[in-house]
Design a protein around this nucleic acid. Structure first.
Lengths: 185, 185
DNA sequence: TGTACATCAGTGAACGCGCGTTCACTGATGTAC
DNA sequence: TGTACATCAGTGAACGCGCGTTCACTGATGTAC
């Protein structure tokens, strides 16, 4: 059952991508190696030909989740605070963690993970800050990063709580309240 | 080895309290029934005399974690935004999740848990809002709840990210940036 | 270019381990007389 | 109040199961001639 180098690289690629989504949906401990491999169209035995351990995949999948998504077409519109908030604090984002922000989906799990995973999360926060910085370009330079960090934390907290909460009304209220509050600053 | 009714009630109490702390520290899946019972000074076999399942304890421990802490002495000082932020967004709080806010410690795990656990988290958010409302008593009534929800989400997000992030500098920066940003509104 | 063989990506059974849960048992508690 | 007995909180061995990981094997790929 040997497979060409190119196909093997694609397999590895598929595993990382599947893991990046499944970890966000089920948590790092909520999905096993065998199920990840099955979702990638493989059997579990081949996993260790690609990765040292599940934990090693966790770090790589986290990095992948933070990398800018491949489809770069929607970059056309210039991001504004309104647009960023509307997209991030939307019911669609809340209900689709697998394709959404990994900071909100895995943030509190990450605190209990290995240094490699936590390093990926540092990178994730920096990537988010880099995306948000342009929103504050009319502010003094020394305040821009501070505002971007604060906005990032607010959005992540609101999305996470809107998912954690059992009450659907409260969940929507959280999204709406944070959107409205962050717009009127 | 039967034990008096009063002692049995204390045992149950101890299990819930221990679980409320250990779950916050290790996550719902990061600590097992046997270890929880050992931490409560018991053996694991007795667990199911007190609870239907681990999941049932999870819901009860979450509620416990959201209940106001027993020591009511520090209520003397009137809470201000400054004091709330200084306490919540402190390195001490960040480094002691077991005694800290369960929204930040377990929020993204909760999204994947049973309705009972998620109902507890609704209650947790409402409890936080109730605590924060007085900070906005000079605002129009219809804005108070919105502001309290937004503040809650911001603080939870900042604390969670400061724990998730591997870089110690970035971690401190997150706490400081959110504190400063939330004060200047 | 064609052939022979070494390589190695992927398979699927098997491993040890820890987990949540069950159960027969123990012995102090609580109760009936 | 004292005695006999039923109750039941807690014990510790055992269960089935799923997990991460290992390994002997397969057969197509890639390479040496």
């Amino acid at each position: 059952m040997r497979v060409s180098k190119a196909e093997a690289a694609q397999s590895r690629e598929r595993i990382v991508q599947v893991a990046a989504e499944q970890f966000r949906e089920h948590g790092f401990d909520g999905i096993g190696v065998a199920d990840l491999m099955k979702a990638a169209g493989l059997t579990h035995g081949g996993f260790y030909g690609h990765f040292d351990s599940k934990e090693s995949l966790m770090a790589e999948a986290a990095l992948r989740a933070f990398a800018p998504s491949s489809g770069g077409a929607e970059k056309a519109e210039k991001p504004t605070l309104e647009r960023v908030l509307a997209a991030y604090l939307s019911p669609e984002h809340r209900d689709n963690p697998a394709q959404g922000c990994a900071l909100a989906a895995l943030g509190c799990d990450a605190a209990r993970q290995s240094p490699a995973v936590r390093a990926a999360f540092s990178q994730g926060v920096e990537a988010a800050v880099a995306k948000l910085l342009p929103l504050f370009e009319n502010l003094p330079v020394e305040q821009q990063r501070e505002q971007a960090l604060a906005l990032c934390a607010s959005m992540v907290g609101a999305l996470m709580l809107s998912r954690a909460v059992g009450d659907a009304g409260l969940s929507g209220e959280l999204l709406a309240a944070c959107k409205s509050s962050l717009l009127n600053v």
